[in-house]
Simulated assay, not measured.
Amino acid sequence: MKLRPLVPADYASVLALNTTATGLVDPLGLDRLDWLRLIAAHAVVVEDDGRPIGFVLTFTPGSAYDGLEYGWFSATYGDRFLFVDRIVVDADRRREGVASTVYRAIERSAHPFARVVTRVRSDDPAGLTFHTDRGYVEVGKQRRADGATMSLLSKDLTD
């Protein structure tokens, strides 16, 4: 398994993977994916045997990213965070440590930021457990226009 930059040739695979996580991550179309890749701090594909099995997108403070939760983190933490917008792993490869490997890489590369932040649907016990087991704590909640409640999570990297 290796992590490598997401390139336009990956778009079809990334969009298909994102669709498998519908309800857990925001919808994603081709134009938005292309824009997010260009403004992301990390736009990474997880590849195994030459096949994309996951991807991750992160954003730094001051980016053009327009997500609701990102706005909350910006107002709360200023310029001291790295935001994980989404991480998606192929359903057949979940529970194999792929997401843990990606998070370790993100957390190691987060310097100079004091924390890594993300959001998880409050009704996603697996996602919440994954993050709390990694040391993330809930620092807020946010209700979206679609009625979903998001848990806003943060992991302090200065400990």
Rank of each mutant, 00 (worst) to 15 (best):
R51E: 14
H111G: 12
R143F: 05
F83M: 00
G97D: 01
T129S: 14
Y65T: 11
S109N: 12
H131N: 10
S122Y: 00
H131V: 06
D79N: 12
D92K: 08
R94M: 03
L30V: 06
S109Q: 14
T101V: 08
D48K: 07
A126Q: 13
L30M: 10
L128Y: 08
H42N: 09
R94I: 04
S109L: 14
S109W: 12
V137R: 14
K141S: 15
G135C: 03
G135M: 04
E107A: 11
V45P: 01
R80T: 13
D49L: 10
E138K: 13
L30C: 01
D85V: 02
G54E: 05
D31I: 07
A64E: 14
A21W: 06
H131E: 09
A75N: 13
A114M: 01
V88K: 03
R94W: 01
R104T: 07
L33K: 04
A75G: 15
S109M: 11
Y65N: 12
G78C: 04
V139W: 02
V46Q: 14
A16F: 01
R108T: 09
D31K: 15
V120N: 02
D48E: 15
V44W: 12
V25D: 03
Y103P: 00
L82I: 07
V45H: 03
T19C: 09
L57D: 11
T20A: 11
R80C: 06
V137E: 15
L57P: 10
R144E: 15
L33S: 08
L36F: 14
E138T: 13
F73C: 03
L24P: 05
L128P: 02
A105H: 11
A16N: 02
R37L: 05
T20E: 15
E69C: 15
A145G: 04
S13M: 02
R80P: 00
R93K: 07
G71M: 00
T132D: 07
A64T: 10
P61V: 14
G78Q: 09
E69M: 11
Q142P: 00
G127C: 08
D48N: 05
W72C: 04
L36I: 01
A91Y: 06
T118M: 12
T118I: 07
R143L: 14
D124R: 10
G140V: 10
P125N: 10
R144V: 10
F55N: 06
T19Q: 15
V102W: 02
I87P: 04
S122K: 10
T132A: 13
F113S: 05
H42C: 04
W72H: 03
